[in-house]
């Protein structure tokens, strides 16, 4: 079976990083990048690498419907609503990296299998991608009554969109912790640290559990970290989980692959890596509707 053709909408940081990751994919073949600014660095890089580029937005894809079966949207929540209408009409599979949350929330190592039929899936948030797998792993063996995550990212890696809508991060991540991670109740905190050299992405996951079993929980966390490392090699435990009464605390560090972003921006890397993994899973299962 040949590779499935893919396009990226959004020529900003996320879109550009996605481009480099898709180049390495065994299952997806990047064909095009769509932007709205003909002078954007992302479009220029895509042009240089021989991809079709369009600076007239979604129209570019509408006029070239056979360029891609699967479309990654790395624009904004507002733009995504419009893009999705067009793409659904065209019968495309859509992977949404914006906070629009039209489709189901997806963490590739948690609930990929449940949404193979969805035509639009949402990648939650960077903090969600980093922490929900751990909440899920702990929940599987110990029932999580409350999970709280703290995502610390370097100021340099937080774009203006994230900054202007920081509540979207906390609220969407909390929903993800509950709906995908399985915690009865969730809470998300985000901190932007301006230290220079930049702070590597850190995530702390606090879980309060109903059935404390240190050995089982610890094994589940270690196993999950390995699974995430499959697509984010720089995802690791900073130290062994700390147990305290009915609480387990997991300290994670996420080092990016250094494709377009510097390695400290693990928050951006885990989003694009997870999105590519989702696209590959779809391609592997050959879910063609078009």
């Amino acid at each position: 079976m040949g590779k499935m053709k893919a396009a990226i909408i959004g020529s900003g940081n996320i879109g550009t990083d996605l481009m480099y990751k898709l180049e390495r994919s065994e299952w997806l073949e990047l064909t095009a990048m769509v932007g709205i600014d003909p002078n954007s660095e992302g479009l220029e890089r895509a042009r240089q690498r021989g991809y079709a580029t369009f600076s007239n937005g979604i129209q570019g894809l509408e006029e070239n419907p056979n360029l891609a079966d699967i479309v990654f949207d790395a624009t904004s929540a507002k733009a995504h609503v419009k893009h999705n209408e067009v793409l659904q009409r065209m019968g495309k599979m859509v992977i949404d990296l914006t906070p629009a949350a039209i489709g189901p929330f997806l963490s590739p190592v948690v609930n990929m299998g449940q949404h193979m039929d969805a035509r639009n899936v949402n990648m939650i948030t960077c903090g969600g991608q980093a922490t929900i797998p751990i909440v899920h792993a702990v929940n599987e063996v110990a029932n999580v009554s409350y999970a709280e995550i703290v995502a610390t990212i370097s100021s340099k890696s937080a774009g203006p969109g994230t900054r202007a809508n920081i509540d979207e991060f906390t609220i969407t991540t909390r929903r993800g912790i509950e709906e995908v991670g399985g915690a009865a109740r969730g809470k998300a905190l985000i901190i932007m640290n301006p230290a220079d050299p930049p702070f590597m992405m850190r995530d702390t996951v606090y879980c309060e559990v109903e059935h404390m079993d240190e050995a089982r929980i610890s094994a589940a966390i270690h196993a999950m970290v390995k699974r995430v490392q499959d697509y984010v090699p720089g995802y690791r435990l900073k130290q062994e989980p700390i147990f305290d009464g009915n609480r387990v605390t997991t300290f994670l560090e996420v080092e990016g692959a250094g494709d377009y972003f510097e390695p400290y921006a693990g928050n951006l890397d885990i989003m694009t890596a997870a999105a590519v993994r989702v696209g590959e899973d779809i391609a592997r299962k050959g879910v063609h509707h078009s």
Binding site: V150, T152, I191, N193, A195, I242, T249
Partner: peptide, 21 residues
């Protein structure tokens, strides 16, 4: 020294564990 800012209380446990180690 690490430039930890307000809100990063989780780093206290983390740094303490590291120093103890």
């Amino acid at each position: 020294r690490r430039g930890i800012i307000g809100g990063q209380e989780d780093m206290i446990l983390d740094v303490a564990a590291e120093l103890a180690h």
